[in-house]
Amino acid sequence: MPADRISLHPRGLRALARAGALAAMLWLSPAHAVDAPPAGEVAPTVAADPRLEADVQELAHKLRCLVCQNQSIAESNAPLALDLRNQVREQLAAGRSKQDVVDYLVARYGDFVLYEPPVKGITLLLWGGPAALLLAGIGWLAYRVRRRAVESAAVTALSEAEHARAQALLAGGAPGDAPPSSANRESRS
């Protein structure tokens, strides 16, 4: 895909550049800076009813903008995001439920518009993967811990002879080869 397929959001880019400059100057968070309506844009409409507008915003934050893929349609300034926001607002105002609106967009743009992927066959690994990895990790750890316990139990069990030798060593005797004396060690340093 050539890089010049940005035709849908020349304004978005410019607005972003402007917002970036603004953010650098004023130390604003970029999320706030790009909220400014870009020049030449059809003025962003806002529903008169604040509760409806809150619903619109809530939904818009859950929907991905297909042009600026890491932004929701609430954050993005791409013309398409604006169109989709207006669609959401219009349809909610017409009395359709949030689920209706989500279905409407999914039917056109696919699951990709959802920031939270739905649980279904193809996303099973995505949703279940972390839990499966965690369980596998716990299982492996339990196995290793148990095996180490068995191994160390086998090591700690001393034979009669070993036991006697250890006792002798602890008592200060030198059966067989003597350990290096402290005098030897000091003379080396």
């Binding site: 895909m1 397929r5 297909l66 893929q69 999914v106 039917a107 056109r108 743009y109 696919g110 699951d111 990709f112």
Partner: peptide, 10 residues
């Protein structure tokens, strides 16, 4: 893969 190419559900 090209993330810009979103498969169409249509």
């Amino acid at each position: 893969l090209n993330p810009r190419e979103v498969p169409s559900p249509l």
